[in-house]
Simulated assay, not measured.
Amino acid sequence: MAWPVSAQDADAYVPASGDAAIDRHLADINEYASRYPAAFADEMGRYYAVPRAYVEAMQQQPDWTAGDIFMACALAQIVGQPCRAVVREWSRDHEGGWKAVAGRLQAEPGSAQYRRLRSALEATYRRWDRPAPVAEK
């Protein structure tokens, strides 16, 4: 289950995507968006076809993190659904984290859709000129 995150408890955020690299990216996106909320909203609008006003409204929701917003909207684009549909699916039931939500959308970890999600994350990080987060040793 994902929880709201602040700079002090960034390690507590667990998106449970079923992919450790994706989880690290989503936690790092929380950090990035806390410092650059407008740039995050721009990214989502420009590259993930989500109205900026929708992203900004989601950023104000206490139960949503930037990582979750990214996951919902990127996953939606990959499975050919509007972001709002995936937001509704997550809001309806996210007991098993993003892995369970993705599975219900026919985009299980290890699938071609998840590989596309990893590629989308890599492209976002290149645009941000931000190094990818690495696993702690």
Rank of each mutant, 00 (worst) to 15 (best):
M1F: 14
A2H: 03
D9N: 14
D9G: 13
D11V: 14
V14F: 13
P15H: 09
S17K: 06
S17R: 04
A21L: 14
I22H: 05
I22T: 14
R24Y: 06
R24Q: 09
A27L: 13
A27R: 15
A27N: 11
A27E: 09
D28T: 12
E31I: 13
Y32W: 09
Y32N: 04
A33N: 05
A33F: 08
A33K: 12
S34E: 09
R35V: 12
R35Q: 14
Y36T: 11
Y36H: 15
A41L: 00
A41R: 07
E43P: 00
E43A: 10
G45M: 06
G45N: 04
R46A: 05
Y47W: 10
Y47E: 06
A49C: 06
P51E: 03
R52M: 05
A57E: 05
Q60T: 05
P62M: 01
D63N: 10
W64N: 00
W64L: 02
T65D: 02
A66R: 04
A66L: 01
I69K: 01
A72E: 01
A74R: 05
A74K: 02
L75I: 03
A76F: 04
Q77P: 12
V79R: 08
A85M: 09
W90S: 02
R92P: 00
R92D: 01
G97P: 12
A100S: 03
A102M: 09
R104H: 05
Q106L: 11
S111M: 07
A112R: 12
A112I: 13
A112W: 10
Q113C: 08
R116D: 03
R116T: 07
R118M: 13
S119P: 14
A120P: 09
L121T: 08
L121E: 07
E122A: 14
A123Y: 12
T124F: 05
W128G: 04
P131F: 11
A135N: 03
